Simulated scan of single mutants.
Amino acid sequence: MYNLVYRSTANTLSTKQVDDILNESRDFNKRHDITGCLVYHKGFFIQYLEGEAEIVLALFEKIRVDSRHYEVILLSKGNIYSREFDTWSMAYLSDDIPNEAFQYIKLMVSPESDIPEMSVIPNPTSKRFWLAAKNLLNKLEQKKLN
């Protein structure tokens, strides 16, 4: 099993275009046994992908050349023992559309003191994903306060 985290800057996208990306991702991921999470906020994407290495890396190459975004930066990649998102073909978090993954993701990006004791230590790639997601959500909170 393999995972990968990247961030990118979206070109100007409508809500429908973001929905299309999400639907395309879910369809592709179900067919190719890929799971993960996509965070979209104020024109930025952070995505965590997990599955067979060959498929995940091929998908990332396709993502890199997608014209709907630019500045695609690989944050982390590596082998893992088990999936973090085993029941989600693509969880999705947007500050505009909370969904079934919202509470879980909010917990994962909470300050460490707010997270209950966990018996599983996250792998380095998922730590990188959660840190990037936390930074993005913190920017959202700061903007709301100002």
Score class of each variant (00 low, 15 high):
Y2E: 08
Y2G: 05
N3R: 09
V5S: 03
R7T: 12
L13E: 02
L13H: 00
T15H: 08
D20G: 09
N23Q: 14
N23Y: 11
E24L: 11
S25I: 04
R26L: 04
R26I: 05
D27H: 12
N29I: 06
T35I: 07
T35G: 05
F44Q: 11
F44D: 08
F45D: 02
Q47P: 07
L49Q: 01
E52N: 08
I55Q: 06
I63E: 04
R64W: 09
Y70V: 07
Y70A: 07
L75Y: 06
G78E: 07
N79G: 14
I80E: 00
Y81C: 11
S82C: 15
E84P: 00
F85E: 01
T87E: 04
A91I: 01
L93A: 10
S94D: 08
S94M: 09
S94Y: 05
E100Q: 04
A101E: 05
F102E: 13
M108Y: 11
M108P: 06
V109Q: 00
P111G: 05
I115P: 03
E117T: 15
E117L: 14
E117I: 15
S119D: 14
S119C: 13
I121W: 12
P122N: 15
P124W: 07
K127Y: 02
R128C: 04
L136D: 00
N138F: 13
K139L: 11
L140D: 13
K144N: 12
